[in-house]
Structures are given as structure tokens and as C-alpha cells.
């Protein structure tokens, strides 16, 4: 397998499954066990969904670049995208006891994204360019 690889999608939720299929193939070639690989898929999916919704406001004329890499037994997925500088790692997870007691809806994408990975890094690298790196120890 090529060490680094990437896929570029236009920012529509209809393309989420393309990103998942891309990551799944990579994960399978690394022999990542199915439950762990599924968590990685969910994390990348949630990250892309948030970008499509919040950064690009469902405007399909934008792109998300998804890059994969491996290093020191780590599967590393980096998303490159434009728009608002918002660091999801700084957002606190909801209190799930209260969440269920009040039958709340929404806001679970970032918690799921974070719980599924070992570490996440956000960078606002250049003017109007963000990167979000999702790391799983494999």
C-alpha cells in the first residue's frame, strides 16, 4: 500500500459514503479489526458532516480533501477544508445523563468523533485553510 493516499469530495452529504469506503479499504489493508475500523469510519464521517453543514453550509461548490497516512502504529487521517476557524476539540462533551433525561436532539457528532479516536488535532494553517487530524493507534 502506498503510504500516503487521498480522496477529494465535493461538500455534499451524498458523498459521505465515498469517504467511508475509501477509509474502509485503507483500514482493511492495515488489518484493523472491524469494530475499531467502524469507529474510525464514524469519526471521519462526523468530521466531514460537520464541515459540510457548518463550514460550507451545504454548498456543494466546495471541497474536502481527506488524506490517510500511517506512522508508528498510528492510522492518521487528515481533513483539509476552508471556512470558519472552529476547533471541535475545544467543545465540551454533553452530560449524557442530562441529555437523555431531557430527551435532547443533536450535538452528538463531535462527541462521537472524539470518543472514536485516540487523539484529534485542529490547525488553522493558512488564511482560510483548516486541517483536522484524526489519529487512531492500531
Amino acid at each position: 500500500m502506498k503510504k500516503k493516499d487521498k480522496i477529494v469530495i465535493s461538500s455534499s452529504t451524498k458523498n459521505l459514503h465515498l469517504v467511508r469506503e475509501f477509509i474502509e479499504k485503507k483500514g482493511e489493508s492495515l488489518n484493523i479489526e472491524p469494530n475499531t475500523l467502524n469507529q474510525i469510519l464514524v469519526s471521519v464521517d462526523e468530521a466531514c458532516t460537520n464541515i459540510i453543514k457548518h463550514n460550507y453550509k451545504y454548498d456543494e461548490n466546495n471541497e474536502i480533501e481527506v488524506e490517510t497516512d500511517t506512522k508508528d502504529k498510528k492510522f492518521i487521517i487528515t481533513l483539509f477544508y476552508k471556512g470558519e476557524e472552529f476547533d471541535p476539540t475545544k467543545k465540551n462533551n454533553p452530560d449524557m445523563k442530562e441529555y437523555f433525561a431531557k430527551f435532547k436532539v443533536g450535538g452528538l457528532g463531535i462527541p462521537l468523533m472524539k470518543k472514536s479516536m485516540d487523539s484529534i488535532e485542529f490547525n488553522h494553517t493558512q488564511p482560510d485553510l483548516n486541517s483536522l487530524t484524526l489519529i487512531k493507534v492500531i
Binding site: 464521517d45 462526523e46 458532516t49 457528532g109 462521537l112
Partner: peptide, 16 residues
Amino acid sequence: TYISSAGLGVFMAYIE
């Protein structure tokens, strides 16, 4: 075969 938070959200929206 797969569910994300968007799917979980639908169940939360109707359970009550």
C-alpha cells in the same frame, strides 16, 4: 450496515 449520529438523532427525536 452503518450508523452515525444523524441516525441516532432520529431515535432521540421520536422516543419521547
